[in-house]
């Protein structure tokens, strides 16, 4: 009889209990947001992607060494390099890009594929991406100069990053660079380890760090690239202001063509730079 009363109770209450639509998340285990604010820390790429139908425009500047003092207005009288870039999201995971830098009039084309995204539950513990770059030195050549293929270099850079807390994210980016015609005595193949970190101290502000020591094949007269960055995120723009040891604004030139150490005869050697990253939408969503 007890069972009968239980059934009666359920039948009476069922419509009332069922009257509410249970609140359930559409995706229970979401990817974490904002491992980094943008698709680069300073110069090195992060695991963040350009989403489908988004066009990301980037303008990167780096000036002369700040230790020139007031005479050179701490390097601002001499802009060393500028890179203009466009990246477009073909899908949420795959983006294609093109950029042009002043140094050696380098034109680079690239892809970025985000393979894994860290989830809130930790079921996917880190985000993983792959960047591939093909770049050309497009300076005018004279007869006898290396051909176009010999003036190319390639970069393959997988990255793994983890957002450890709302504030702290870390990234490792082992990097392979292939120069098709390096200067005499230099290696064709350069291997480096990019290390990046970001400390977010407010909703829209962060400081970052990137360091990319070459572990094998370092070209003569080069030093490990390093930069500290200050990031401002505004919903459509991300601005970086940075102090960098190098004047390269693509991966290969930053990692393998940084020609001054952090300290030179006891004096720090840094360059001031800034990036403007702006995202537009092309098409519907």
């Amino acid at each position: 009889m007890n069972n009968a009363w239980s059934l009666l109770t359920v039948l009476i209450l069922a419509p009332a209990l069922g009257a509410q639509v249970p609140r359930q998340r559409v995706v229970e285990d979401r990817p974490v947001d904002n491992t980094f604010f943008s698709n680069r820390i300073g110069v090195l790429q992060t695991v963040e992607s350009i989403r489908s139908s988004e066009l990301a425009m980037s303008i990167l500047h780096v000036f002369g060494p700040v230790n020139g003092g007031v005479d050179g207005f701490w390097g601002l009288d001499n802009y060393a390099n500028i890179r203009l870039g466009l990246d477009y999201g073909l899908t949420d995971d795959l983006a294609l890009g093109i950029g042009r830098s002043k140094l050696d009039k380098t034109v680079d084309v690239r892809f970025k594929y985000v393979w894994l995204r860290q989830t809130e539950s930790g079921s996917v513990p880190m985000s993983v991406s792959l960047v591939g770059v093909a770049a050309w030195d497009t300076r005018k050549s004279a007869p006898g100069d290396p051909g176009l293929v010999d003036r190319m270099h390639f970069v393959v850079q997988p990255s793994a990053a983890r957002k450890i807390s709302d504030a702290v994210s870390l990234q490792l980016s082992p990097t392979y660079i292939r120069f098709m015609n390096p200067p005499p005595g230099d290696h064709y193949d350069v291997w480096a380890l990019g290390i990046g970190a970001r400390y977010r101290y407010s909703d829209t502000r962060a400081v970052g760090f990137e360091w990319a020591p070459v572990v094998s094949g370092a070209p003569a007269g080069t030093y490990p690239y390093a930069a500290v960055t200050y990031e401002m995120e505004t919903g459509g723009h991300v601005f970086h202001i940075f102090l960098s040891t190098g004047d390269g604004l693509n991966e290969a030139y930053a990692i393998a063509r940084t020609r001054n150490p952090v300290l030179n005869a006891g004096e720090p050697v840094f360059r001031f730079g800034f990036n403007v990253n702006r995202i537009f939408r092309i098409g519907g969503y």
Binding site: V21, R23, Q24, R25, V26, V27, R30, D33, N34, F37, S38, R51, E54, D203, T204, E233, G235, G236, V238, I279, F280, R281, Y285
Partner: peptide, 20 residues
């Protein structure tokens, strides 16, 4: 009711800022 994580503004960066 609406799961607010499903709102899209067309720019992922803005969506992330809105959510966070």
């Amino acid at each position: 009711h609406l799961d607010l994580n499903t709102i899209r503004t067309g720019i992922a960066l803005r969506d992330r800022q809105m959510r966070e």
